[in-house]
Write a protein that binds this DNA or RNA. Structure first.
Length: 875
RNA sequence: GCUGGGGUGGCGGAAUUGGUAGACGCCCAGGACUUAAAAUCCUGUGUCCUUAGGGACGUACGGGUUCGAUUCCCGUCCCCAGUACCA
């Protein structure tokens, strides 16, 4: 074995051996002799280069995959490419490159980077979303969903990002901002294909119970909020002098006697129907409100209330009172029924509206406690009803239930639940996506393409302008077709699918990646899936993760899978961020790379000022997600070149808990590198003296016994940490074990059998437990320890077995406190009896000194932990 | 505003059910080896006080419960994330 650790040499060597021995190629094991484990990381978009966020994500997934293999699981660990999407088209617009060539080239680069990291993927299962073999099944699923009524088309207001010139789904425009570029989104009228996510609304909500224990609560919470269940009632208000009714949704039917108006959205049907009868003044106000609603809004912008009385009257079915019908800009057409009853006494928005327009405000709820003399409205809590005819005196909670039931019995309403979740708009006026496989025929209408004609292939070329029109609409060879039904001439749909379609089911394709007839063989999918552990960023909480859950429920109903949830456990890793320096005096941020910046730091190492080295201009600074364009990116290739893949991976795992944000700090990686070199040296030092393979009889020296104890304690710790998905603490434990090996003072040549066995056991365990983090060096050291180059997996090695007996301390330290303050320590055998601990503590000389002149009131003994003596000065 | 999650040395971070706060690593300082340096090894490293032994303080801040609180409860401040007229 080499005297020194040469990362590059052994990394290349073992990557070769793994590939040749097909070490990570997994196949189903129908006999179930080994339990399966599906370890999955979110697939990357092939942007051109791997960044540190990827390294962190994949290092964690790989560590888990290795751990499970060493634990005897049959592990599926695949990777692929989310290779449809906008950057390829942007590159086409900016640089005139072909999106396909650009994408393929990026994939090649990034695959090389992944390989150099030595990640244990089953590369045979790699999927490429942009290749016809894959997107054929996007289309296959689309048609299946169309047949099931889960895909439909309608005119709608879509979210439109001016910056990206792109349509966005509601999820992608959450918060009114584009998920990709962060700019505000406007509304635009477009015909749009939808997938009926709302068919599974309640299941998406309730299904969370079954994955609750394995998902971060923050993600569950966000999905829950996004689905937005709201329990209340519908109430129909009859329109005076007409048969029409206005249905409102309210969660506070108990406040209905306080309604002063009905307020409807500007787009509401009642407005549309009566438009002709409105005065020009009313019409122009309505149009103004509609126009305003389509404009983008800034994040913290408070929109002033606006509205107008339409002159229409509606009857409150509970009180018989006639109420004016207003149009209000604060009522949204796409929530509830697009109409609300305005109760200014008990709703803040209605109150503001009523004050602004001089509408009457009535109190109909009083606090349950009578001691509130003057009540300031609006009062929005539950209480008891007042001024509400026969209902007065009832508590809100009872009234809510009873009044909804009453409305139902009288036929003017019913209890109701509404949701915020909307259907998923998937039409994109884009080239680089899967064509929607639908055909428009003048005679037959909308007709799906025949399954045998799939895939509907993207043309080689299309005029990509980035102006928001569908490029495919300019390619007659593409859209000119014949109707599958009547064979007359017909036109293809020229929009493509949202690329989130690809990522909604790719993890099933991994289970059977070359199937040409089906998206996957249900047997394979049901063997491997659901995914046992999914790892990725939490920025996909309400996009990808909700679509994938929807997709799973839909394909379950197609009979393809037999479970309800795709990801049993989810781990969200934090971003990797770095310091950035920029000048924004021009209104746009111009970033400076760190080597072009001069810094002042305070005593705590925090930056106090930054100036451009060349121009001495003052710069602003921040901590932002790493990226090349911001100049704070660390190139994984460079890091691997300098320190090796093993040290790089070890460091990203050790640096911080996986779910934390990681502020990049170059210095720390040296520590990881040093640690690997130390293990190498320790192995090198002992390698010729490790011939004792059987534990000698119990004549062990204290030193040997101590090392074995540390070894087995470490096995326990590391195993426990993996089970709870902690990746930083097991590395610390391995470092401690290595330190313990270093503490063996006996020279190898002089070591007795006990010590040689103990060191052998410690080194072997250390190396095996290191494998998930730094597999190459672990393989190399293991090959020397076992004198075999077969490889850890091929030789059937397993995660070391924990022996409780060996891990037990033979002497433990017990803290002795006086009045809760640490005053001394005693050393005893484990499980020493309470009485003995108390006696020993009280007898301790130092403790005696402290107790001098005091009276012992009480002694608390915690076995194996501490003794606390409660004492007070003698009276 | 609302809803989550946080606040521990110079830094990243450890700490079973409440039981010795600061594991491990980084940085820094001193020493050994070396002609010298690198590498390596050893020692120290929360703050303050003390000649020493040791002592006082210390997990954002203020209270509380407890023999004992980083951990539980109440209040305050700050940070991060999500979200925003959701009726």
């Amino acid at each position: 074995m080499d005297d020194k650790y040469f990362a590059k040499k052994i990394e290349k060597k073992w990557q070769g051996i793994w590939a040749a021995s097909k070490a990570f190629e997994a196949e189903p094991d129908p006999e179930n002799t080994r339990p399966k484990f599906y370890s999955l990381e979110m697939l990357p978009y092939p942007s051109g280069n791997l960044h540190m966020g990827h390294v962190r994500n994949y290092s964690a997934g790989d560590a888990l995959a290795w751990y499970k293999r060493l634990k005897g699981f049959n592990v599926l660990h695949p990777i692929g490419w989310d290779s449809f999407g906008q950057p390829a088209e942007d590159a086409a617009v900016k640089r005139g490159v072909n999106p396909r060539d650009w994408t393929e080239k990026n994939i090649e680069t990034m695959r090389g980077q992944l390989e150099r990291l030595g990640l244990s993927y089953d590369w045979r299962r790699q999927i490429y979303a942009h290749r016809p073999e894959y997107y054929k099944f996007d289309q296959w699923f689309f048609i299946k969903m169309y047949e099931m009524g889960l895909a439909y088309k309608r005119m709608t207001q879509v979210n439109w990002c001016e910056t990206d010139q792109a349509t966005l789904s509601n999820e992608q425009a959450s918060g009114g901002l584009c998920w990709r570029c962060g700019n505000p989104v406007v509304k635009k009228d477009l015909e749009q294909w939808f997938l009926r996510t709302t068919a599974y609304t309640s299941e998406l909500l309730e299904g969370m119970a079954s994955i609750e224990s394995g998902w971060p609560q923050s993600v569950l919470k966000r999905q829950q909020d996004w689905i937005g269940r709201s329990d209340g009632a519908f109430v129909d208000f009859a329109v005076s002098g007409s048969d029409a009714k206005i249905r409102v949704f309210t969660t506070r039917i108990d406040t209905i006697f306080g309604a002063n108006a009905i307020v409807v959205a500007a787009q509401h049907d009642i407005v549309e129907q009566n438009r002709a009868a409105f005065s020009p003044e009313i019409v122009s106000k309505i149009d103004e409100i509609i126009a305003e609603s389509q404009k983008p809004t800034e994040r913290d912008e408070v929109i002033a209330k606006d509205g107008i009385d339409t002159g229409i009257k509606a009857i409150n079915p509970f009180s018989g009172e006639e109420l004016p019908v207003w149009v209000g800009n604060y009522v949204m057409m796409d929530y509830g029924t697009g109409a609300v009853m305005s109760v200014p006494g008990h709703d803040e928005r209605d109150h503001e509206f009523a004050v602004q327009f001089g509408l009457p405000i009535v109190q109909v709820i009083a606090p349950l406690e009578d001691d509130a003399p003057t009540l300031e409205l609006p009062f929005c809590d539950y209480g008891k009803l007042v001024n509400s005819a026969d209902w007065s005196g009832k508590p809100s909670t009872d009234a809510k239930r009873e009044m909804a039931a009453f409305a139902a019995s009288k036929g003017f309403g019913e209890p109701a639940t509404t949701y915020r979740l909307r259907d998923w708009g998937i039409s994109r006026q884009r080239f680089w996506g899967s064509p929607i496989p639908m055909i428009y025929c003048d005679d037959c209408g909308i007709v799906p393409e025949k399954f045998e004609n799939l895939p509907v292939l993207l043309p080689e070329n299309a005029p990509i302008t980035g102006t928001g029109e569908s490029p495919l609409a300019k390619v007659p060879e593409f859209y000119e077709t014949t109707c599958p039904n009547c064979e007359g001439s017909a036109r293809r749909e020229t929009d493509t699918m949202d690329t989130f379609v690809d990522s909604s089911w790719y993890y099933y394709r991994y289970t059977d990646p070359t199937n040409e007839i089906m998206p996957f063989d249900p047997f394979a999918a049901n063997y491997w899936a659901p995914v046992d552990q999914y790892i990725g960023g939490d920025d996909h909480a309400v996009m990808h993760l909700i679509y994938a859950r929807f997709w799973t429920k839909a394909i379950r109903d197609m009979g393809l899978v037999q479970f309800d949830e795709p990801f049993t456990r989810l781990l969200t890793q934090g971003m990797v961020v770095g310091e950035t320096f920029f000048d924004d005096s021009s209104g746009k941020r111009i970033y400076f790379p760190p080597d072009k910046v001069t810094l002042d730091r305070d005593a705590k190492g925090r930056i106090t000022s930054a100036t451009a080295t060349d121009t001495s201009a003052a710069l602003k600074f921040a901590v932002e997600r790493m990226s090349k364009s911001k100049g704070n990116g660390v190139d994984p290739d460079e890091m691997v070149e300098i320190y090796g893949a093993d040290a790089s991976r070890l460091f990203v795992m050790f640096a911080a808990p996986i779910e934390n944000e990681l502020v990049w700090n170059e210095a720390g990686i040296e520590g990881a590198s040093r640690f690997l070199q130390r293990i190498w040296r320790q192995t090198r030092t002992w390698i010729d003296f490790l011939d004792v393979t059987e534990a000698p009889a119990d004549t062990a020296s204290a030193e040997a016994r101590g090392l074995r104890r540390k070894t087995h304690q470490t096995i326990k710790r590391v195993g426990d940490n993996f089970e709870t998905l902690q990746f930083n603490t097991p590395v610390a434990a391995l470092m401690e074990l290595s330190n313990a090996i270093g503490d063996v003072k006996t020279e190898p040549a002089n070591a007795d059998a006990d010590t040689r066995f103990a060191v052998r056991e410690a080194l072997t365990a250390l190396v095996l437990m290191l494998t998930p983090f730094s597999p190459h060096v672990a393989e190399e050291l293991y090959s020397h320890l076992t004198a075999s180059e077969a490889g850890i997996l091929a030789s059937g090695a397993r995660f070391p077995e924990f022996n409780e007996e060996l891990a037990r301390e033979d002497e433990i330290e017990i803290a002795v406190q006086v009045n809760g303050k640490l005053r001394g320590r005693i050393f005893v055998a484990p499980d020493t009896a309470r009485e003995d601990l108390e006696k020993l503590a009280l007898a301790d000389a130092r403790i005696q000194e402290f107790l001098n002149g005091s009276e012992v009131k009480k002694v608390i003994v915690v076995p194996n932990r501490l003794v606390n003596i409660v004492a007070a000065p003698k009276a």
